[in-house]
Simulated assay, not measured.
Amino acid sequence: MNKTFITYAYFFLLILLSSSCNAKKIKPSIECEIINSDRNEIVFSVHKNKMVDVAIVLRENSDKTVFPAEDKSVPLSSKIYLNELEKYGDNNYLLYYEKNNKLEKIELLIMAHNPNASYFIDVFTTKSARSGSKASKLDTVISFPITILANMPDKQASNVVCRNMTSNSLEISCQNGNGRGRIIVASLNAEAEKPRNGQEYKVGKFADTNCLIGKHSYVVYNSTIMSDLFVKLDNLQQGTYYFAAYEFNGEGKFINYNLKEENRNTRQYTLPVPPPKMKPAKDITQNSFIMNWEPIEDVLRYEISLSKDENFVTVDEFFNNADIGDTNEFPFENLEEGITYYCKVRAIMKNSRPSEYSEVQKVQLKK
């Protein structure tokens, strides 16, 4: 049985009682556990001392519960369908109550309830079990709030794509599934963390703590508008970015995310290395000049290109992404006198990643 949304894991309530059984003092206890709660079923378990009478009530809202009538009796059933039960009071269902039942474990499987709903499970026990008195009136022991999520979308968001990447920005988008809305979560140098059901998230820029999920992920898109718009992320650090898109239904505490990884709803992109920063050309003559730029750390080599047009439609055959090693300047010689030249450079890093090209530099030779 899959656990989809557990409101309480374990709750222990010790009830002290001074009594005699086989010449030994016994301390009856009640241990309650919600094993599973989702849109299909609630599984609730009570472990008790066999001396204790227990009644279990499902309540539809947060109003004060009504104690079960002492003359009612509801035996243990393998499955309980709410639409087959009669209410007592305005909003209470008596799920189980039998006097003098010696069971030590009671497990209830509650079926057929609605999504987007809130319930309380109230557990009652005999007053004598809690106080040591001889009275048998039922009294409240503990209440468990349960939230039933909205139906999960069955078609996940898909095809996360990225475009217009620079060294510090990119645009991200995905195609819609069939949820009420979707979110895109982003993370740097680690897989994006998943949202939690029953919790809504604010949207913001990457690294904005107001839109944080978990420890290192951020919600960069959150919308119920059915569109495939691209979201631009800027002022990004260098590194590899991980993205995940999730469909959801419901809102507030009922929100239910489809957390499956399918249909290419997760992707990762590594930003290109920033381009070298050009310095003004130096030692310009009639047929030569020296191209130079600021050095980059962890560079393996530089590649330079030279052209007579600024769009590099025609590139000098010898200087077309020419590998010049790790030096950060290069002399061009034996050029045509008085001509205007254009040059650019890119870095190839030690991890083989190329940088973007530098800005194109215009150099007018002397006449």
Rank of each mutant, 00 (worst) to 15 (best):
A207R: 13
G181T: 06
D234N: 13
F243M: 04
S217H: 02
E193P: 04
S217P: 06
V219S: 02
I184F: 00
D208P: 05
E193L: 07
I183F: 01
N210K: 11
P195A: 09
V219P: 01
N222Y: 06
I225A: 13
V220H: 00
K205P: 00
F243P: 03
G179E: 05
K205G: 13
T209M: 11
N210S: 13
G179L: 08
P195W: 06
R182I: 06
N235L: 08
D208S: 10
E193I: 03
V185G: 04
G214S: 12
G214K: 13
E191V: 11
H216M: 08
P195R: 05
L188T: 06
G214H: 12
I213S: 05
T209V: 13
T209H: 08
Q238K: 11
A186Q: 04
I225Y: 07
K202D: 08
Y218G: 02
Y201V: 03
T240I: 11
V185K: 02
Q237S: 15
R196P: 05
R196Q: 14
Y241D: 02
K232V: 01
Q199P: 01
T209S: 14
A186V: 10
S187M: 07
T224N: 11
M226W: 11
N235W: 00
I213Y: 05
F243G: 02
N235P: 04
G179P: 04
D234E: 15
E193R: 07
P195M: 09
D228F: 07
L188W: 02
N222K: 08
R182H: 14
L233E: 07
N197H: 14
T240N: 09
D208Y: 04
N222V: 02
F230Y: 15
I183M: 07
V231M: 09
N222P: 05
R180Y: 10
L236F: 05
S223G: 11
K202R: 13
Q237E: 12
S223D: 15
G179V: 07
L212S: 08
I183E: 03
Q238W: 06
R182M: 12
D234C: 09
I213K: 02
L229N: 12
I225E: 13
N210F: 03
Q199E: 12
K232Y: 02
S223R: 11
Y218P: 05
